[in-house]
Design a protein around this nucleic acid. Structure first.
Length: 462
RNA sequence: UCCAGCGUAGCUCAGUGGUAGAGCGAUCGGCUGUUAACCGAUUGGUCGUAGGUUCGAAUCCUACCGCUGGAGCCA
């Protein structure tokens, strides 16, 4: 049996071949007088390979009944195409029907809306758009590892199941092995989680940051890349309950170093996809977002604007815009404010830093002014916040004060405070939303369409 | 969770109180080195679900479910 060649390799061939085997799924089929055109796609490429099946084939009547979605293996010759629109085509000597399809196959030749395709998430990777999205997703994941590995970062697998219910990062999914119909109870009737599987309350992680800090304070430069879970009832195009995050953490690194790394990371990842996924990006530029390529190139070339929270508030106050929500020191920047900064004013990614301590979590380092903390958010046009990070508070006494101010008990975080007791160092890190970056890179406006099988409130099918 | 809009054929939609429609798809036939082909015919429905108003409801009212956009939370 001839070993199969991918459609991508066949299309990129530099010479005809006397014998070639290709296999994949029928995108569409057309009859001509004495033969049939089969468009074959195997996901290796956006493009399909045209197969010519002559009526002299012994199973030609079966070939003529081939429907969109069927799987076939074709053995034949790779020859220069007589028609326009493609360089190569396969003249079939044999068309083996592996798996038939029928008229109920939901993917039609014409375009479908992303909303409809979302309902058939198991079949949508067979569409042009979603095939492209998930090829880019794969490349982006690969680029994340090469970026950090080439710079000496160590990849750390932080736990998915965690006992840290804190962090103030949204609501958590409880992980339990307790029988809900018959839970162990304490004397006061409350559920006794000390008798649960891990002998304590456990949850799906909302962030690997605290654990990554422990490893940064040993291996100097580390990153995590894995799934995180938020039980927020968020119904937006930018939120999912299961998503992937990249979290670098660097010892001996201050906020400026952190902002430099965030900018370099985002630029590198965009540049990598720009170079390696051109065909797929062209599809997005054509059907999803006409401005996509220009915006990506702009982001790669220009420095990100950096502005303190205080200056950003002042800029927004003087903007003359009639915002729905008030602008003022001590208030969170609203989506409309972030959008104005990045889309209207700077027309580029913007890094906002040094936020008031009141609106940021306990672990961020207090600045000398006693009012602001070393937080930084990278905002990009169309998406909003794509990176959130900070320099961490490395001073034991200040960190304990921060905890108390956030109504947390330092005793619950002994191991985290130990990092400040023994050889504490200034260190920084950030979280980069993988799907948000993918949305930015592809122009796809809904996070549900860049996740293979999205988990959102009320929806966990597949 | 809040605000707004939408839910009619496999898909995209029209129909705003009086017999359920179009385009595309699919099926059959014709034509053709075609390529979101072309020409002709055929096929197509629990009008999201449950109540209510009415002589009569896809259409008006109520509740629920789902989707979309915006907001909050954040990545």
């Amino acid at each position: 049996m001839v070993s199969a060649t991918s459609v991508k390799e066949a299309l990129n061939s530099s010479a005809p071949r006397d014998e070639i085997a290709v296999q994949g799924w029928v995108r569409t089929r057309r009859d001509s007088k004495t033969f049939s055109f089969i468009e074959l796609n195997d996901g290796s490429s956006l493009r399909s390979l045209q197969v010519i099946a002559q009526n002299s084939l012994p199973n030609y009547s079966d070939v003529q009944r081939l429907q969109t979605g069927a799987s076939v293996r074709v053995v034949g010759k790779l020859v220069a195409s007589q028609g326009k629109g493609q360089q190569w085509e396969v003249a079939a000597d044999e068309v083996q029907i592996i798996g038939a399809s029928d008229e109920t196959y939901p993917l039609q030749k014409k375009g479908h809306t992303p909303e409809f395709l979302r309902e058939i998430a198991h079949l949508r990777p067979r569409s042009n758009l979603f095939g492209a999205v998930f090829r880019v997703r794969s490349r982006l994941a690969y680029a994340i590892h090469t970026f950090f590995q080439e710079r000496g970062f160590v990849y750390v697998h932080t736990p998915i199941i965690t006992g840290s219910d804190c962090e103030g990062a949204g609501e958590l999914f409880r992980v339990t092995a307790i029988d809900p119909t018959n839970p162990p109870r304490r004397a006061d009737g409350s559920i006794d989680y000390a008798k649960d599987f891990f002998a304590r309350c456990t949850y799906l992680t909302v962030s690997g940051q605290l654990e990554a800090e422990a490893f940064a304070c040993a291996l100097s430069k580390v990153y995590t890349f894995g799934p995180t879970f938020r039980a927020e009832n968020s119904n937006t195009s930018r939120h999912a309950n299961e998503f992937w995050m990249i979290e670098p953490e660097i010892a001996f690194c201050d906020l400026n170093c952190d902002m430099d790394l965030a900018e370099e990371t985002v630029k590198h990842l965009i540049r990598d996809v720009r170079e390696h996924c051109d065909e797929d990006l062209q599809l997005f530029a054509k059907f999803v977002d006409k401005e996509l390529l220009a915006r990506l190139d702009f982001v790669i070339e220009r420095p990100f604007h950096r502005i303190t929270y205080t200056d950003a508030v002042e800029l927004l106050g003087k903007s003359g815009e009639n915002f729905e929500f008030p602008v003022g020191y001590g208030l969170n920047l609203q989506s409309e404010h972030e959008r104005w900064l990045t889309e209207k004013h700077f027309k580029a990614p913007v890094t906002v830093f040094n936020y008031p301590k009141e609106i940021k979590p306990f672990y961020m380092r207090l600045n000398d002014d006693g009012e602001t903390v070393t937080a930084m958010d990278v905002l990009v046009p169309g998406i909003g916040e794509i990176v959130g990070g900070s320099q961490r508070e490395e001073r034991l006494d200040v960190l304990e004060q921060n905890m108390r101010r956030h109504k947390m008990d330092p005793a619950d975080y002994k191991w985290y405070l130990d990092l400040r007791r023994y050889g504490s160092v200034p260190h920084s890190g950030f979280g980069l939303g993988f799907e948000r970056l993918l949305m930015f890179v592809t122009g796809v406006p809904n996070i549900r369409d860049v996740i293979p099988f999205a988990r959102t409130p009320g929806s966990a099918e597949f």
